[in-house]
């Protein structure tokens, strides 16, 4: 299946004019070719631009592609037109985003549960920044709103799709500590027990604090 030059050329023109994400479906329809052929064409273009280190690159977000600038040219662009600088996300915003990204769809209550703190304002802020959006309602009591990430989220963090997110297990505790820790547990039960001395100590401080 050879992709004609004409197809790739057409895709380049369309992406240039459109600017924003161009969906594979739309492109296929316009060019009167199959979806598979369209994807191949896009991917070939992507490779070419990268290999030749061109000033434009292709970025995939879900089922769409667009032209973007390579990181190394950001400086020149800034000098040219001072693009609007997005404010860095706060630590709490990133935490909430992390929870939503890996647990979606998820309710505000579930988010609060993990963080141990109310996250209302942070969630609202993320909605405003279009990093998360409503994805329906939970079946539970009160039918709370479920939240998930947006295409903008993928763009911001450089992922083509949610599948590209690293596995959550990658972020678990240090393996060394885990092995040590595992030794302390036997069938989910701590083998260490509190000594009477520790209990006595705990007791005194308890009295003082009360």
């Amino acid at each position: 299946m050879t992709i004609t030059r004409g197809v790739k050329s057409a895709l380049e023109s369309m992406m240039f004019i459109w600017g924003d994400l161009l969906s594979v479906n739309d492109a296929a329809q316009i060019l009167n070719i199959t979806k598979a052929e369209t994807v191949s064409a896009f991917e070939e273009l992507k490779e070419e631009y990268e290999k030749e280190k061109r000033g434009l690159r292709l970025r995939r977000v879900e089922d769409s592609y667009q032209f973007v600038t390579p990181i190394e040219n950001a400086d020149y662009i800034e000098r040219l037109c001072r693009p609007v600088k997005k404010r860095r996300l706060s630590q709490s915003a990133l935490e909430v985003l992390a929870i939503i990204a890996y647990r979606q769809p998820v309710t505000r209550g579930e988010i609060d549960q993990v963080r141990g703190i109310r996250s209302d304002r942070v969630v609202d802020g993320l909605i405003k920044k279009k990093l998360i959006e409503e994805k329906g309602r939970s079946e539970g009591v009160g039918r709370p709103i479920l939240y998930g990430t947006t295409a903008n989220f993928l763009k911001t963090f450089g992922y083509a799709s949610l599948a590209e997110l690293p596995a959550i297990s990658d972020f678990a505790e240090d393996p060394d500590t885990e092995v040590e820790a595992a030794a302390l547990y036997e069938d989910g039960v701590m083998t260490n027990q509190i000594s009477f001395a520790e209990v006595a100590e705990g007791n005194t401080s308890g009295k003082e604090k009360a």
Partner: peptide
Amino acid sequence: YKQFKAVSQMLAEREARFRYVLEKPRE
């Protein structure tokens, strides 16, 4: 919690890197 905190740090690094990938808004 620690897991998600680690994730958030990863996201922070990625955001710092990919904020220099610019697109042209819809014409």
